[in-house]
């Protein structure tokens, strides 16, 4: 047994593997919420992405990387369409965002549209013919410790790192990011500055949805990888919690996602080694962490300091002053 086969490395690697779909979904939701739109439909969007990605992997022909690339884009596009519906409801029609998001989860979720489409596409119980594989970057996969941690992941893990970096840069270092945040903080001021609030919210809600869709593709082409009804099993809700856990910052959301993945694996890894620590307790830990963070954030002063967009969840109505 090499140095790479110990509990710590295994759980850390596993945390990254299972945390990655949550990274995509929560970073997507960070973008959406930063523009002032709360989209509770992450679970439904992930399932749409998973179903569409699975369909694409069966029906598109070509080399493995090409098909996977297309499947990812199609999964993202399908989820972005669901997000578009949300944007239409909450930005244009100004429907209550919580109600619209919940409706979206039910509509697109495990018993809804994703299931219906997968049924008509006949996806069930067929392993995806094209699946993501682990890479060995620079051939360093067996390097002690850093090999499995950094150089032996599937391409989606590396892609998620790029997404996190790019999103941080976009939000905090670009003019467009500044506009996006100002729309989320104070849409009236942004409007007075000449920004198109509705358009910025539409675009960023769809970008957020697209990333949730990529998270869904991770389930149907990587983790399972077969379409199974309702396969995300509530992980869209975890992604929502991670946004708060990460104080609306992509990097922190990623750390939260990895922690969640690691805790989820730790319980089962210990069980498999016949170590008796209540798995239920370990399973509850990430939620406990989220509750603690929620308590901290619920203090309104802290809320402002830590990054919650001030206009989150509020519709923008121009005449209302």
């Amino acid at each position: 047994m090499s140095i790479n086969h110990n509990l710590l490395v295994e759980v850390a690697v596993s945390g990254m593997f299972y945390g990655t779909p949550l990274v995509f979904a929560s970073v997507g939701e960070v973008i959406t919420e930063r523009s002032g739109v709360l989209n509770l439909g992450v679970e439904g969007m992930m399932l749409m992405g998973a179903a569409a990605g699975s369909w694409a992997s069966i029906h598109i022909s070509g080399s493995n990387p090409w098909v996977l690339f297309c499947a990812t884009i199609i999964g993202a596009a399908a989820a972005a369409l669901v997000a578009l519906l949300h944007a239409f409801l909450v930005v244009t029609l100004r429907v209550n965002q919580i109600v619209a998001g919940l409706a979206l989860t039910i509509f697109a979720g495990g018993a809804g549209l994703s299931s219906f489409l997968a049924n008509s596409w006949n996806l069930a119980a067929k392993p995806a013919p094209h699946q993501f594989q682990e890479l060995s970057v620079f051939g360093w996969k067996n390097a002690p410790i850093i090999g499995p941690l950094l150089f032996h992941h599937n391409v989606m893990v590396y892609f998620s790192w790029i997404v996190v970096g790019a999103t941080s840069w976009y939000l905090f270092r670009t003019r467009a990011g500044l506009h996006l945040r100002s729309v989320g903080e104070s849409p009236h001021t942004a409007d007075a500055m000449g920004l198109n609030v509705a358009r910025i919210r539409y675009v960023n809600t769809m970008v957020g949805g697209a990333l949730a869709g990529v998270g869904g593709v991770y389930f149907s082409l990587l983790i399972v990888p077969t379409w199974v009804d309702g396969m995300t099993q509530g992980r869209g809700w975890i992604a929502l919690a991670l946004v708060i856990f990460g104080f609306w910052r992509p990097g922190l959301a990623m750390i939260g996602a990895y922690l969640f993945g690691a805790f989820a694996s730790l319980g089962l890894t210990l069980q498999a080694r016949n170590v008796h620590i209540s798995p239920d307790l370990l399973d509850a830990l990430p939620y406990l962490m989220t509750i603690v963070v929620l308590i901290i954030v619920s203090n309104s002063g802290a809320r402002k300091r830590l990054g919650a967009p001030a206009a989150l969840g509020q519709p923008f109505i121009r005449d209302e002053r």
Binding site: F219, V224, V228, Q233, T269
Partner: peptide, 27 residues
């Protein structure tokens, strides 16, 4: 036979985690 409970009839992600844990433990 080493057992790993997922406490769910249906959670493919957890099932995979459990199976990986079992294989890592030497089954």
């Amino acid at each position: 036979v080493q057992v790993a409970w997922t406490k769910s009839w249906f959670d493919p992600t957890k099932e995979r985690q459990a199976a990986e844990g079992l294989v890592a433990a030497g089954v």
